[in-house]
Design a protein around this nucleic acid. Structure first.
Lengths: 250, 250
DNA sequence: CGCCAGGTTGATTTCGCTCAAGCAATGTGG
DNA sequence: CCACATTGCTTGAGCGAAATCAACCTGGCG
């Protein structure tokens, strides 16, 4: 299997053309359903680009030209509402694929995607995806699984927004982010550095920035969590967990 | 509630074995992607059953045994929360398929499904679905499209729950239900009979029954909509539409 | 008949929003 | 280099929409 596709010389462009076969996110990504030959197609046709924080992959309203996936880094998904406010819907993490929703329906992105950390993105054009989708049922099923998951998450978010307090929702958000982005395992505590502004955190749970401020202050003075700029430290994991359940008992 | 036991009157067996090829919902359903032979497989293996209002197709927590689809009728999708309250997440309409979410992930239903009107349900077992899914990529893509749609709807619901007033959300709900269930076209007005209790309506937009009551009373006294039991009449469609937009202008 | 779930109504409370001001960090142009 | 906008964050004061608590109707059903 080492016969083809290897770039011999290690020039600068090689760092911009990561090998799909060696991708760390390979078994998380949908492409794991592909055969060796099919993955080679991706590997050959994909375009790779580096995005710095703040650079956008695509804008809401743009025509969908293909799919974006990445090995490591972080991308934010935003939507701008009628008043022009940009609200953060969620963040992706390595192995996620962006743009498949628009590729399937209509073809127009209804969200924007923006790098939050320096991120290397591999772009696969629409035609190639379509071809693979049509020839390999397993690939579609991978996306299906992903879409079902997304639907579940969104429904959960709705339920929480109407049943849980802001405090509980924020605690929940912190725990989710911890599960996704905490690199090194710590026992009973954790520290997290996120490239997210307060307003972005607020938007993710559907509250106003002012309320986010107050909630953080509360958690701070209750000793549940400590915030320094964009890093948060939680000394007692269990106490944060308790915040989720309170509601059920009173 | 529902009197169980034997069926009230003997049905012709033909009415309990509808022909997939003649199904009114055929082009709405995912099966439209199938070849003639493949559809024949469904037609032959499916089991058909009549459900009366209140009867459940499956319970939250049940193992998923296959897929449910129906030509006409109405089914409610519920979730029971920690306190044991059953909350209505949504209603299906002809051509929808139930249970595909659980079939794809894990295999355990995380919602319950219950007939709201007399409904004839065709059941297709897991193994058959899996086989077709594996051999015909187009079928998976149909479900994918459906799942993406569901995710969009859920995200929309979340956004609305945190940005719109109860009144606007309810107006929105009425308009959605109208689009789905209004049989005969009326111009500038509409009448709707829904097998939904007030609490179910309330749950669908994430509010308490008391608030639903008051909101209905408001709309009533503002002349926007008239409620008699479970039928609602809206004399001026535009006025209901206005309820959605108010927020943007003040 | 009494029972009970569903629905309405009223009184009260509360959580989060709105409005408004102040502050620190960053940028910008003269 | 300073004067200044600008943007993100915090804090306070007050308000208001919806939740909560509680009472009281219904109508269906054993």
């Amino acid at each position: 299997m080492s016969s083809s596709g290897k770039l011999p010389n290690a020039k600068k462009s090689s760092s911009l053309r990561p090998d799909c076969f060696a991708c760390a996110a390979r078994d998380r990504a949908e492409w794991c359903a592909l055969t060796h030959d099919e993955l080679s197609i991706i590997n050959d046709t994909k375009q790779t680009r580096e995005y710095l924080p703040g650079e956008v992959l695509f804008h809401q309203g743009d025509a969908c030209k293909g799919l974006y996936c990445f090995e490591q880094g972080m991308v934010g998904v935003r939507k701008v509402d009628a008043e022009g406010n940009s609200i953060l819907l969620g963040v992706t993490f390595p192995g996620d694929t962006l743009g498949y929703r628009a590729l399937l329906t209509g073809g127009e992105h209804h969200v924007s995607a923006e790098a939050l950390k320096p991120t290397t993105i591999c772009f696969v054009d629409k035609a190639t995806v379509r071809k693979l989708l049509d020839q390999n049922p397993a690939l579609g099923l991978q996306y299906l699984r992903r879409a079902v998951e997304a639907a579940d998450v969104a429904e959960e978010k709705f339920l929480q927004s109407v049943t849980l307090s802001v405090r509980a929702r924020f605690a929940h958000l912190l725990l989710v982010l911890k599960d996704r982005y905490q690199k090194k395992a710590e026992d009973g505590e954790f520290t997290l550095e996120l490239p997210l502004s307060r307003q972005d955190l607020a938007a993710m749970i559907g509250i106003r920035p002012e309320t986010m401020s107050r909630t953080i202050k509360q958690l701070e003075s209750d000793g549940i969590a400590h915030f320094n700029g964009r890093t948060v430290h939680v000394p007692k994991l269990d106490e944060l967990f308790d915040e989720l359940e309170m509601e059920h008992f009173l």
